[in-house]
Structures are given as structure tokens and as C-alpha cells.
Amino acid sequence: MTKQSHITPQLMRIDDEPFYQPVADEIEMFEAAAKAGLPVLLKGPTGCGKTRFVEHMAWKLGRPLVTVSCHDDLTTADLIGRYLIVGDETVWVDGPLAAAVRAGAICYLDEIVEARKDTTVVIHPLADARRVLNIDKHGEQVEAPPEFMLVISYNPGYQSVLKEIKPSTRQRFIAFDFDYPALEVEARIVATEGKVPLEIAQKLVKLGQMTRNLKGAGIDEGASTRLLVHAAQLIAAGVKPQAACTAAVARSLSDDPDMTASLQDLVNAVF
């Protein structure tokens, strides 16, 4: 038998504070969950600040952050790790989840419903009182240090019946509801992130709110805060507001010519 070695990737820490505008008591709640070693589920529409919140909390708690965007080809090995052959040796390389567990990091599984069901199951022992990760391949059981924290997110809005989060998974997590912030708060976020005057940010947010009124009436979701920030960044880069909104909002939300035309009407009405 050849000698086995083991590689664990070095994890990055977030040094600069990521901008996050708290809306309610989510920061305190997250800190409490971190203290109690509880896994967290973030629910909310796309682009409303879930990922940014996790980044902010990782910075605040001073822990490394490992983010995995889930997709339907994500295998258990992609999360836990696999053997590779290096020269004449077999080498075990930790996957992102194993690396996060060993390092006591925050592991953030974004859009968990997209992952295959059999993959989702490997997080179960990590997400209850056991707090262990089983690496069947070499019979290792990694106990999570107190700093390790599991965070998953999903978008409960418009989703396929073929993709739902299983009750056995979701019932292991404490859940946070995210939504788009109130007008003034969101305008501040758009102004800060997009580097535009507050007055323009307010118009963008009004436009965003109007498109959200159309959720389910032709578009799946209205313009996210992220899209509005993109529009603001285009404006800050010198693009005319209407053109910026056409590119960042109207065309981005729909391919249907009628709907795009209506969205364009809205853009023109607001600016």
C-alpha cells in the first residue's frame, strides 16, 4: 500500500467590512445562532442581500467563509472531497465542506434546492446535535469545532414542483426570512453600493417596487436590490438613467416583448 497524504485547502478570511444594512434584528439573531452552534436557513427572493449578509457576518465573527453555489450535478464528493493521484501517491483532497468543518469556518450552501437530494443528505449529521461530518471514503469522522457554522439559502418564491427542500432537511435549521427592504432603507443601500445620489436611488427603488407588483403577473420576480444596484452603477459610470434601467432592469426581467415594452413604459414613467 502506498503512503497516503492529505490536503486541506487554505481558507480566506474577509478583512474589509462588507457593507450590509440591517433591516431588523437579523445580526443579533445570527450571532446567537452562532454562539449556540445552530445551523441557519436564509429564505428570500433573489438579490435581496442573503449572500451579503453571510459575508458580513463572517467578517463580524472573524471566521473564514466557504461559499458553494449548489447545482443539480453537485455530488457528495464535490462537497466532502476525493482522492487524487499525484505521481505515485494517492492524495486525499478535502472538498469545501470538509475544509470548512476542519477550519471552523462558516459554510454557506447557496440555493440548496438546486443540489441533488442524495447530496443534501450529507449535511444532516452536521446540522443536528451530532455536528460531525462522515467521510466514508477513508472512514473518518470529523467533529465540527464550535466555530463551524452551516448556513443554507433558498428562494421560496416561484419554484418548480420538482425541486423542493425536504422537510427532514429544513427542520434542522433555524430560519430567517429575507425580503426587499423598505423604500428608504433600500434607497440608502442602492445609493451606497451604486455610488449615486440618494435622489436617483429613490427613483430606482420606486421602479423596483413597481416591477415587484408584477411578480406572478408575467414575470417571476421583480427587480432585486442587486439589479437596482447594477443600474445605479451604470448611472454612476455615466450612462443615462433610462438606458441604464433598460439594460439592468427591463431586459433583465423578461424576454417577452410585451412585458419588456411594459417595463420600458415604467422606466420612462419614473425618469
Binding site: M210, T211, A217, S262, D265, L266
Partner: peptide, 15 residues
Amino acid sequence: IHRTSIFLQAISGEA
């Protein structure tokens, strides 16, 4: 009608 009803739903918040 299509375009107008979308437009009004967006600004009024109701269908």
C-alpha cells in the same frame, strides 16, 4: 390592453 394592464398593475400594486 395587455401592456396597459401590466403598466397599471405595476404602478398601483393591484390587478
